[in-house]
Design a protein around this nucleic acid. Structure first.
Lengths: 209, 209
DNA sequence: CTTTCTATTGTCTGAAGGGACAATAGATAA
DNA sequence: TTATCTATTGTCCCTTCAGACAATAGAAAG
């Protein structure tokens, strides 16, 4: 799947120039004249991509669009472009998660370097989050009771204690536990704990450590 | 323990002014006229602290000092101060781990806000890293053989397989395993896995997941 | 009303883990 | 050379866990 760069800038001639540059570098390019154009035509994240975003554009400006995207749960890396020097805005943008911040005029080399890094970043983030999503989906498939058992088991409680905590027989816990292992697709207890750690379960329950 | 701010700036009158402001806000303040003064008198990180660092100082400049500190393993949060607008330097500094980047002239409110955030950041980072250091120390106390057993056990291998992998008896593995649990101060297998995850062991070995 | 899901429990067998008590042997440090 | 560390293995016994086979019962959905 070819990587795609979304260019949001109100300057038509700049869009054309960048589009030509990035196309020649092997990227698919989509251009938008404003933040609204981008938001209404919001791309999915099914392939590695990033946004090249001008800070000062009519309507919603760069940082405002960035804020909207974060609210929408987007993880598209953003490379900002700014034609004037403004340190506070730069700091704010990077703190808010921008991948890079370039100043116009920008050299082709700098631009391509930044885009390449952003694409690479998105690619690794995508594969990581897709794995996490799968784990989260498995956890979501647990019944409430199974989830309780899950929490206690990954804390290291033996079945007997889990049974006492949940007010039922040890045999019942074994049944739930079996389904938990099945649904989470864990072949061993350490594997189950590993999955739990990755999605940030555990901590709250365990009194030791 | 009182929080401490290390002010590195070549402007004596600025140092005095900032010292007065921060002292009144309840911080201990140490001032340095140059990066070298700071490096030769390098403070330990035994208490929450941060650095307020001017970008443009004679000798080693701000970013260079930042680089040195990273190389030295320091985790002191750095709040940069810059008297002139330079976006690339700002971006570089923040990418290199700076906590904040302020521009002169800076309001007392902005400065205090940034310092407070940096101190808080350092405080949480310190407690986290001290816990990790303890775990790492425990791992370091394992003998080579115990470490091998540790790695395989947290991957979910049963003793029998570990024994086969290391070419010894299952009984031997049980002995090592016992010592591993003891040295790592883990009361259960899940706890051991949890510790392993935190210091980034595991991953490499496990073929599943 | 029937099917499906969820929670519950039982027995039995075999595998795996944990602790106690004990011992051998090579390497290293004092 | 003696003491300590490390690696090794044994037996015995009890606990815990896993899987197979099987069954009951309430709730929700269709």
């Amino acid at each position: 799947m070819n990587a795609c760069v979304h260019v949001v800038d109100d300057d038509a001639s700049f869009r054309t120039a960048v589009e030509r540059l990035l196309s020649r570098a092997g990227y698919d390019v989509a251009t938008y004249a404003s933040a609204m154009h981008f938001l209404t035509d919001l791309p999915n994240e099914s392939r590695p991509s990033c946004i090249l975003l001008d800070v000062r554009i009519p309507g919603l400006d760069g940082p405002a669009l960035q804020k909207r995207l974060v609210e929408l749960g987007s993880t598209l890396p953003i490379v900002f472009l700014s034609g004037y020097l403004n340190v506070p805005v730069t700091v704010g943008a990077i703190k808010a998660g921008a991948t890079d911040f370039l100043t116009k005029p920008v050299s082709s080399a700098d631009l391509l370097r930044a885009i390449e890094a952003a694409i690479a970043h998105h690619e690794t983030a995508r594969t990581l989050s897709s794995k996490l999503d799968m784990v989260r989906a498995h956890v979501a498939a647990l019944t409430p009771r199974e989830r309780q058992v899950f929490d206690l088991v990954v804390c290291g409680k033996p079945n007997k204690l889990v049974a006492r905590a949940l007010g039922c027989t040890e045999r019942t816990i074994k049944a739930h536990r079996h389904r938990v292992m099945e649904k989470m697709q864990a072949k061993s207890l350490p594997e189950l704990v590993s999955l739990a750690e990755r999605i940030g379960v555990v901590s709250a329950n365990r009194q030791n450590i």
